[in-house]
Design a protein around this nucleic acid. Structure first.
Ligand SMILES: [Mn+2]
Ligand SMILES: [Mn+2]
Ligand SMILES: [Zn+2]
Ligand SMILES: [Zn+2]
Lengths: 151, 151
DNA sequence: CTCCTTATTGAAATTCATTTTCAATAATAT
DNA sequence: ATATTATTGAAAATGAATTTCAATAAGGAG
């Protein structure tokens, strides 16, 4: 996902394109996996010294609303963020290296239809998150730290 | 879901069956939808007067581990809890009344298979949460508060 | 380019759900 | 009953995330 796309969307929605937002968008786009807010901050500071954590939270919330970022729900209740595309809701996340793979929302339709039919619910939003091992991290968990995706 | 089942599982796993745990299990089982920790506390106190919030959190964590409770991920980052059955992972939640419907994990298999095939991931755990309107809350959002499920 | 308006930013303080500590209590086995 | 120890609850601490508010800078008008 190109960080330029995010910036264009900002303009289109009437938001200003600022240095902090550019730096945050780029940091998220270039990451190989999901990042905590603090990690986004550390990376975005390369391009925007003085950047504050508050601004990172605000930008991440904004990007998430626009569909260009997605929250990752961590066991401890905190959240990570991963670059995303507006139409691909579900994601699979590697437990070890944090790599994120997005799954087409179209793949979900059959399940959605069945769930709706079975329950009578009119479904408005999805939260689908699979956790496991990405191909690279399979069959070698104890081969040392393979945390490559995050950086 | 019967609260007795939870207590039996506790015994089987070597945990003690205490008054607080009984009260919490019952509160959760009798709720018509998900509850916040504070709400569980309020209800469980009927059967266990001096009950503390800390114990509620601990019991909910324990029940969740055993599969008898499931977390609901709220927008603000906090969590609710709903009674659950060990083998039904996905859940649909009513935005209005909090009613929770569980979906058989079997329904997920095709999606899971496709996701795994497409991404090469070896999936270990799922987080599937649909949000929308339950049958009762459809076509009448402005008909006043229908928050029936929660109580 | 210059000026204006106001969205945006960042430091500091605050919030508040959740966790940790630790001494007192009560569940289970013998 | 008695002993063992898992469990509990009050208080304090944690820490991710948010709110405040004065200073700053983006973008539009002239
Ligand atoms: Mn939190
Ligand atoms: Mn969450
Ligand atoms: Zn991996
Ligand atoms: Zn409802």
């Amino acid at each position: 996902m190109d960080s330029e796309t995010i910036l264009q969307a900002l303009r289109q929605h009437g938001y200003r394109v600022t240095r902090p937002r550019r730096a945050i968008a780029l940091a998220l786009a270039q990451a190989r996996g999901w990042l905590r807010a603090e990690e986004v901050l550390a990376r975005a500071r390369d391009r925007c010294p003085g950047l504050g954590l508050v601004t990172v939270y605000r930008a991440l919330a904004l990007f998430t609303e626009l569909g260009f970022a997605r929250r990752v729900h961590l066991e401890d209740g905190c959240h990570g963020y991963a670059a995303a595309q507006p139409r691909q809701e579900p994601q699979a996340i590697c437990r070890v290296c944090r790599a994120v793979v997005h799954i087409s929302a179209a793949d979900l339709r059959p399940l959605l239809r069945r769930a709706a039919a079975h329950s009578g619910y009119q479904i408005e939003s999805l939260l689908v998150e699979f956790t496991g091992l990405c191909p690279r991290c399979q069959g070698g968990e104890d081969q040392g730290i393979r945390n490559q995706a995050a950086r």
